[in-house]
Amino acid sequence: MKILVPIKRVIDYNVKVRVKADHSGVDLTNTKMAMNPFCEIAVEEAIRLKEKGLAEEVIVVSIGDKSCQEQIRTALALGADRGIHVETEQMPGSLQVAKILQKIVEQEQPKLIILGKQSIDSDNNQTGQMLAALTGMPQGTFASKVNLEAESVSVTREIDGGLQTVKLSLPAVVTTDLRLNEPRYATLPNIMKAKRKPLDVIVATGLGLNLKSNITTLKVEPPAQRAGGVKVADVAELVSKLKNEAKVIS
Rank of each mutant, 00 (worst) to 15 (best):
G140P: 00
A246H: 12
L211A: 01
T165L: 09
E158V: 09
E151R: 14
N147F: 14
D81K: 02
S144H: 05
V230W: 10
K52R: 13
L170D: 06
L115H: 03
R196P: 09
V248W: 02
I3P: 02
E56D: 13
V230T: 15
K66G: 12
K8S: 06
M130D: 02
L163G: 04
E51M: 04
M35E: 03
Q109H: 15
Q109D: 13
M192I: 15
K193F: 10
I11G: 02
P189V: 12
L188Y: 14
M35G: 05
R157L: 10
K111A: 07
N147Q: 15
Q118S: 04
I114V: 09
D121P: 01
A143V: 03
A42L: 09
E221D: 08
L131D: 01
I3Q: 09
L180K: 00
D81I: 04
K197Y: 05
L131S: 00
R82L: 05
Q139Y: 06
K212V: 09
G128N: 09
T165E: 13
E44Y: 07
E40S: 09
K50F: 02
G64E: 02
T31Y: 04
K247F: 05
G161S: 13
Q139C: 03
I113T: 06
K111H: 11
A172N: 00
Q118R: 11
I63Y: 01
L178R: 11
A21Q: 11
N210C: 08
G64M: 05
S240A: 15
G79V: 06
R226K: 15
V232K: 07
S24Y: 09
V105I: 13
P198H: 05
C68E: 03
T175Y: 02
G83D: 00
E56H: 11
Q107D: 11
R157Q: 12
D160W: 11
V220S: 01
E221L: 15
I3Y: 08
N36C: 12
L112Q: 00
S67L: 11
D200L: 14
E51N: 10
T74L: 15
R196A: 12
I100Y: 01
T187I: 07
V86P: 00
I7Y: 01
S62W: 03
D160Y: 14
K103Q: 14
K20T: 05
A34V: 04
D200C: 06
M33Y: 06
K2R: 15
K231T: 15
K52P: 07
A55C: 08
A204I: 10
G53S: 07
K231R: 14
I47S: 00
P223F: 05
